[in-house]
């Protein structure tokens, strides 16, 4: 927790992907902090507690100086006398916290997140890994089923119109890439990643209508959702040549 907001970081058990989630202080009804605070929490326990709250409930998260637990108070909005309190004890993660250095990416595309989710799902049916290539003209996601020889490919061409936003939920321009593509393209880049982790990242589509894919040769793939209250980033380690 810092004066800007709350930053969460987590890693999967196989250490293939790292998730970073930033929630700005503006997404909270009130946000008070005396000093920066770093907590290691079991995400399952935190999720279990937060799921006890209904959509309209008020959740208050509290941790004191040298605290060993995060206290979550859940209050019913129209019945403020009705409060339940839950403690989530801290755990020791040791050195599992990582510093993510900001690197200049070679290419960035932004596509509709629902389309991205469909792409990840479809290619995962074919193969455990896929190749992502971004060239000047667009981007290509390819998966090959080595058993049957079937190959699946999704191509995104650079949008001709700068703001090819959809007018309604149903009016989705096929394969359109939003204009940020121009600004972030420096050189043709390709990466191979596990489809399983791409599917995982793509499931966060409800957060934002758009998702960005950023790449740099031999660096983790970055799948990023920007939204008003913050940003969600998935870093996925590539499969590299032996």
């Amino acid at each position: 927790c810092s004066k800007e907001g709350i930053m969460l970081q987590g890693m999967d058990e196989f250490h293939i992907s790292l998730v970073e989630f930033f929630l700005s202080k503006r997404s909270f009804e009130s946000y008070a902090l005396c000093h920066d605070l770093c907590m290691s929490l079991p995400i399952d326990s935190l999720a279990t507690v937060l799921k006890k709250a209904n959509d309209d409930d008020v959740c208050t998260l509290k941790a004191g100086h040298k605290a060993k637990v995060l206290t979550v108070a859940i209050e019913t909005r129209d019945q403020p006398w009705l409060v339940s309190k839950h403690d989530v004890p801290f755990i020791d993660l040791g050195s599992e916290y990582l510093v993510i250095s900001r690197i200049p990416y070679d290419a960035k595309i932004t596509v509709w997140s629902t389309r991205f989710a469909r792409l990840a799902h479809e290619l995962h049916q074919l193969s455990g890994s896929l190749d992502i290539q971004i060239i000047h003209e667009g981007a290509r996601f390819t998966a090959l089923d080595e058993g049957s020889g079937k190959k699946g490919c999704f191509i995104f061409r650079r949008a001709k119109v700068v703001d090819e936003y959809r007018d309604s939920e149903d009016d989705e321009p096929a394969g359109a890439i939003i204009h940020e593509f121009h600004r972030y393209f420096h050189k043709a880049t390709s990466l191979r990643v596990s489809t399983k982790y791409l599917v995982h990242a793509s499931k966060r589509a409800p957060l934002s209508s758009k998702v960005s894919v950023l790449m740099k040769e031999d660096q983790p793939l970055l799948v990023q959702y920007d939204f008003y209250e913050g940003v969600l980033k998935f870093y996925i380690a590539p499969r590299i040549a032996d």
């Binding site: 250490h15 992907s17 990582l98 993510i100 250095s101 890994s129 596990s194 983790p220 380690a237 032996d242």
Partner: peptide, 14 residues
């Protein structure tokens, strides 16, 4: 052939 790299190898521990 390709092998899966570990995400920890790209980022540093503080």
């Amino acid at each position: 052939t390709r092998s899966q790299s570990s995400i920890s190898s790209y980022f540093q521990a503080p």
